[in-house]
Computed example of a mutant assay.
Amino acid sequence: MNITMVAAHTGCGIYPDNTMASFQEGIKFGSDIVEVDVRVTQEGTAILLHDDSPYLLTHTYEQLNNPDVRPLLDPAYKEHEIATLAQVLRVSDPIGMKLNLDLKTADAIDPTVKLIRQYEALKRVFITGCSEGMTERFPDVQVMLNTPVELSSRHSERYDEFAESICQEARRGGYVGLNMNALTCRQEVVDRAHDSGLLVWVYTVNDRPTMERFLGMRIDAITTRAPKILMELISASKQL
């Protein structure tokens, strides 16, 4: 029986997105996966950050993490230090926590792969986001294919063809699965993906009815800012 994994979106609790406090919340909620966004500083340190900033091109991590400088990246950093990917990998290692690393730029690829290997985390880390060329360069890294954020009218009307083509693309490209906007995911693509040995993840689902619908579709992982609700639904479904 397929058991859907709970993927806690960055900022699933009271703390700001992409801080270590927020990451710890994802763990404490009992999630199967925690998602974080990754960018790099001027000297190549991988940090947790969603939005781009010109300061990334001119400042090292040490300079950016200065209490007087870091709020320039985001007001949240007035109270929180800038978290690094190394910290996330180190904290999650003892418990074997799975990670969804959403790479925001191509220059984050090499520093991220280096850290994954350093912490021997190949089996528990999945890459989403900017991942062009990764499956060819790093075939041992688990990369999810990011499918279109929106469906064209043609794809919407001829969804079977879209489902088949996207699964073929994933198989040919060496991806381990599909990472889909929840609005674009239907049962046809889930069935085709599973028949092809591919995972299907959806993002970002925060309401109970949509969670229930995807649980019924046998989705492999649901990314959410409401992990407690999703875990309650999964627990209830196991008792049926």
Rank of each mutant, 00 (worst) to 15 (best):
I33G: 06
V34G: 08
E35Q: 10
R39W: 05
R39Q: 13
R39N: 06
V40K: 11
V40F: 10
G44W: 01
T45K: 10
A46I: 00
A46E: 00
D51Q: 04
S53Y: 04
S53C: 09
P54I: 10
Y55D: 15
Y55M: 14
H59K: 11
H59D: 04
Y61E: 05
E62W: 07
Q63M: 10
N65W: 01
N66K: 10
N66E: 15
P67H: 13
P71T: 07
P75I: 08
P75H: 11
Y77L: 15
K78A: 13
K78D: 02
H80S: 05
E81W: 13
E81K: 11
A83Q: 09
L85C: 06
A86P: 02
V88Q: 06
V88T: 11
V91K: 12
D93C: 06
D93G: 03
D93I: 01
G96A: 07
K98P: 00
L101I: 04
D102N: 12
D110W: 03
P111Q: 07
T112M: 06
K114T: 15
R117F: 01
R117C: 00
Y119E: 00
L122N: 08
K123I: 04
K123E: 13
R124F: 08
V125D: 05
T128D: 05
C130H: 15
C130F: 15
E132G: 09
G133E: 04
G133A: 07
R137C: 08
R137P: 05
F138Q: 00
F138V: 03
D140A: 02
V141L: 05
V141R: 01
L145S: 03
N146V: 07
N146C: 11
N146R: 13
E150T: 15
L151M: 14
R154P: 02
